[in-house]
């Protein structure tokens, strides 16, 4: 089945001026394209139009186009966004949009960044689930109304898009900082009653570049496309680490 052409929808006569960052890790510059404006057009549609119709050498990344996979994030008019769910109408300024790669990650080419630094930190923060019941022989009974479960549930809908990571100034200042997404993940595990190593998770984030490096300025929460609040999760981690340290459990 061939993919629907992104420009097949009702086309208006209006044109959109689009500045796209072209280049690699070393060097680059914005290049300007004219793209017909369409109804319900997303920023990803615009980028796709350019790649399909105007300049096939343009590199970018996407997959699901419905806000689930987290692969399409870019910097749109200076802010990190998921481009497949960002309508042109909501971001356009005087008929113009600017699209650049995500901040805080090395550029591979054009709009495609190397997200491995971002995902490596999920590993570093020991964000793997540690089952209490290794062979899962019994169904785990989880009380959905418990405080812990509510805290975990509030943080689990992360799509790994890297928007929060790109929005975080502390990542820029300290490239070792684990960042909002990895810390948010750790917080969901610490609150998961099925996870058997809460203290191990706390130890992994109570580091030089862990939860205490966060300035709580909420740039991550403000920009997260799925409305998660990593700032609150990190504040929770700080409290738990505080308590664990006082009890000598760190």
């Amino acid at each position: 089945m061939s993919e629907p052409e992104p420009q097949s929808e009702t086309q208006s006569n209006r044109m959109l001026t689009v500045d796209i960052w072209r280049g690699d890790a070393e060097d680059g510059a914005f290049q300007t394209y004219e793209v017909p404006q369409m109804e319900s057009q997303t920023v990803l549609d615009v980028v796709t139009y350019i790649q399909r119709k105007l300049d096939p050498s343009l590199s970018y990344r996407f997959s699901c186009r419905v806000g689930m996979c987290g692969s399409c994030a870019m910097t749109v008019n200076g802010k990190p966004r998921w481009t497949c769910r960002s309508h042109v109408d909501s971001v356009v300024e005087n008929g113009r949009i600017q699209v650049a790669p995500l901040r805080n990650m090395p550029v591979i080419k054009d709009l495609a960044t190397d997200m491995s630094v971002f995902f490596d930190k999920w590993q570093k923060s020991k964000s793997q689930f540690v089952p209490t019941d290794g062979d899962a022989s019994e169904f785990a009974v989880v009380d959905p109304t418990s405080k812990e479960r509510k805290a975990a549930s509030a943080g689990i809908e992360c799509i790994g898009c890297g928007v929060c990571y790109a929005a975080c100034d502390v990542v820029e200042w300290n490239p070792d900082y684990l960042g909002p997404a990895a810390l948010n993940r750790a917080w969901t595990l610490v609150n998961d009653s099925r996870d058997g190593d809460a203290e191990g998770h706390l130890r992994a984030v109570a580091t030089d570049a862990g939860c205490h490096a966060c300035h709580s300025h909420q740039s991550c929460a403000r920009n997260c496309p799925t409305s998660l609040n990593p700032t609150a999760s990190i504040a929770g981690l700080k409290r738990k680490v505080f308590a664990a340290a006082l009890k000598g459990r760190l």
Partner: peptide
């Protein structure tokens, strides 16, 4: 890490 926690 522990130093960081105590300083905090």
């Amino acid at each position: 890490g522990r130093l960081e926690v105590w300083l905090f």
